[in-house]
Design a protein around this nucleic acid. Sequence first.
DNA 1: GTGCGCAAAATTGTATACAATTTGATTTTG
DNA 2: CAAAATCAAATTGTATACAATTTTGCGCAC
Lengths: 236, 236
Amino acid sequence: MTNAVPNPEFVKPTISGPGAKLVSALSLAIHEHKLLPGTKLGEDELSEIFNVSRTVVRAALQALSHSELVELKRNRGAFVSQPTVREAREVFEARALLEPRTARSAAERMNEDALARLKAHIKAEHDAIAAGESGKALRLSGHFHIEISHIADQTTIAGFIERLVARSSLIIALYWKRQSALCEKHAHHALVDALGRGDGDEAEELMKSHLLDIVTALDLRDAPAPAVNLSDILTP
Amino acid sequence: MTNAVPNPEFVKPTISGPGAKLVSALSLAIHEHKLLPGTKLGEDELSEIFNVSRTVVRAALQALSHSELVELKRNRGAFVSQPTVREAREVFEARALLEPRTARSAAERMNEDALARLKAHIKAEHDAIAAGESGKALRLSGHFHIEISHIADQTTIAGFIERLVARSSLIIALYWKRQSALCEKHAHHALVDALGRGDGDEAEELMKSHLLDIVTALDLRDAPAPAVNLSDILTP
DNA sequence: GTGCGCAAAATTGTATACAATTTGATTTTG
DNA sequence: CAAAATCAAATTGTATACAATTTTGCGCAC
């Protein structure tokens, strides 16, 4: 069965043709933490798996690098990005700057259709958790924020938020405190409530504290990134 | 003589090797309004001008499309982007959201070196205007905002602002009211003053009104579109 | 046994050839 | 004469071949 959410894609169609499938599949896998930060994405490997030439693989990897999910190192290859602690802090500072205001706008532009989409989204999150599909649940919880930004109807800012959410997924993979449970369930539910009532003040406040909660569940001391490739770190 | 400004590049090194030159040259030409929105960027044409294969031209065009300076249309080719009126409004709304706050941060992190760079920047703008190089002046005036965002030391947000400034350049090419003079001279000078004094409140306020001034000088009602000959402008 | 150096293998970078699609002009047809 | 159909030229999309670079592994000296 396919996703219950209208648009399951994170990466906008910056690329078309056969490469689009590759971009979708890779970004999906990264968002669901099936591909972990540091994983090498070899060109031959991918071209064989997807039955396309290296030309389109390279185009897809370049596209992913521009959305910052993948890092390209010249003559070395493509790797799933490994945001640093500093980048992690910056990403959530940027989200704190953009998203609360965006949630307010969304509340002001709310309508029946949008509310239905959000509720369906939360249900999908629920179902994924119930089914034990933690990767999918994680991806959906990120996508929830994107959905709100789309309701706010600010395409440009929504694009920024998409990038930040994508990066957040990598950050969570690297810095999430294992002991703290990921229970965005209540926060998202409360947000949908506020949005449904058109309560911009509350939506803004809820989003602010929700983002703070997420950061609190991260371990952003100088924790070394669990690198797959040690040589990247040990050789200057 | 080369630029007096430390980093004349707008597009970050998302691409390396021979293609980097191409990206630099094209983004420079676009920022200086030598290549106007809607201009077609043919692959053969560029590969001949820069003496590289179409492979690297395509990579460069893809990079430019991800920074939204260029729009790729499948089976049609690459064109200098033509932001719509709606996009234009969104871009300046996003700038209004990000830049005043960023100017405040910059004021708080100001130091001797940064102040010197900003003053050198303003001087370069001055000189370009005096020399009648309006394209260069325009590019520098955009880069001034990027310089401030770098001083604020928020790489992620700085990246967003870079994209917005790039897009603004296209917007100005399309929607600038000819009658209104572009005199960012005073605004930029006042900003540097406030920043130099570490006056965050004033810097934030000045940036806000400065951005408003720019929008006011735009005619965001309709949109014509010009075009141009490539080989007349580009020389590697 | 450790470290260095060199050569082979693997991988990425670039160029070129060919396929698919669009474009524009010319011809055909009502 | 206008509109539609068509065919050739031009342009982009994709695959493959070759070059450059990095990685790997073996052998040798110390």
